[in-house]
Amino acid sequence: MEAKFVNCEGVQEELMDWLAGTLPPARRQTLEAHLAECPGCQQELAAVQRLWTTMGQLPVPEPSEQLRPTFYAMLADFQTAEQRRQRWSVARILERIRAWWQPAYGLRLAYSVALLVVGLVAGYGLKGRPDTTGMGAGQPVAAAEPAAAGPEAQPTQEVLALLSNPSAVQRLRAVSYAEEVAPTNERVVAALLSTLNQDPNVNVRLASLEVLAGLSHDPVVRQGLVRSLPRQDSPLVQSALADVMVRLQERRSVRPLRKLLQQDNLNEQVKDKIEQSIETLSGDQAPPPSTSSTNHETRTLT
């Protein structure tokens, strides 16, 4: 009984292949052998097979006459649409390529490229300049090391660059910075002297005079200060310079000071000041044996 049951299950499993006619011959024989002795399966299969066969006979009406022409019309439409699309796109591309080669566009293109190149070069140049100061500004610690000779070049460069800065504030900064980092550097000294002589701003000139006065042990500085005397036109700088001369006991300055006195537009107070200075300096220098006491007095006074 159980074997038969399993076999009936098996029939169900193979039913679809059997109906479709795809069951291998050996299996078909087994199945048909089972059918012969199992009326239940026989009946079942007969019913299903009848259904299956009937299904195969299900009528399908002929499609109407319209179907074919409609299809070919659709196909033709599709073809023309496709061609139009292709032609359109190819034509567009060609047109664009041609447009690129037209002289007007060529000129515009060349102009654009030229502008771009100019912009790039200018940008590169502008970028290069602030870079030196920017990089140097981060270096004051290294520069403050007096023993290190190498890094000194950097602040020197920076001071020189700052001294030629158009902003007076920056130049003032440069002067004090010069005093701080590289006062003995001869290039810096030269730059400070030229600042003293030429800088348009009085304050900057005064500041550099201050720094240079501190460097008076250097003969170059002394000489430079003396030579600077006739070049000054500001009463403030003139009197400050006269003071420095007295302080340094620089006798070489007497002659330029006298020359200065001959200027017509000299400020009255400055005139007094210079006269005093000349007096002090030349008094100091004058007959040393006769008036040694007064000389002494003047010296202590100054």
Partner: peptide, 27 residues
């Protein structure tokens, strides 16, 4: 087109609609 028509016809039992569907498949 015939097998397709049959497929739609068996699925819908509507000949006119089936023709439209066949057309649609080819499109």
């Amino acid at each position: 087109h015939r097998p397709l028509f049959a497929f739609f016809y068996h699925s819908s039992a509507n000949a006119t609609a089936s023709e439209d569907l066949v057309q649609n498949v080819f499109y």
